[in-house]
Amino acid sequence: MPLLKDGKTVDDVWAFVEDGHELSPGGCIIVSLGRFLSEHDQLLARNRSIGVRLAVSDDPALLARFLDQLHLIELQFPKYTDGRAFSQAQLLRRRYGYKGEIRATGQVLRDQLRLMIRSGFDAMIIDEANAEGVYDYSAHEFSEFYQAASDTTDTIFIKRQKKREEKAAE
């Protein structure tokens, strides 16, 4: 399935390593939160790109102190109606200031892309032949937002305020 990063299809260089399995010596690896928390010293000492997969019930706060050393966090959509990963992404971006990749996996459908982008996802694995086209369309379906989120803080409320201030300045 295509991997989209910032709206472009790219090769996936990451591999998830199951708990208890040997870490391969090369490549970028993703581990579970449990494994990361128990082995973070060794994992981070490897001096290679490391990512963590969070289950929908995992608390992103547990990663807060490691975030500047992580390159990827994978969040899951076991079903596309399960929106817990939206809260996880918002917490990672807006509360803990995480700057690395947030990747969506699981049941990722085009009609959620806008919500994902807004919540802070910059990568997703999506089952669409024309993934870039679908992304481009979904990302621009709406041009205004009432809520500040990870993508923009320029909300309708703020724009209205700016217009008022411009008017007052005239």
């Binding site: 596309y80 929106g83 959620q112 919500l115 919540s119 709406f142 009432y146 809520q147 409320f157």
Partner: peptide, 13 residues
């Protein structure tokens, strides 16, 4: 109403 319309975090509750 405005705040809750298309809320990015709370649309798959």
């Amino acid at each position: 109403r405005q705040w809750s319309t298309f809320h990015p975090e709370f649309s798959a509750l």
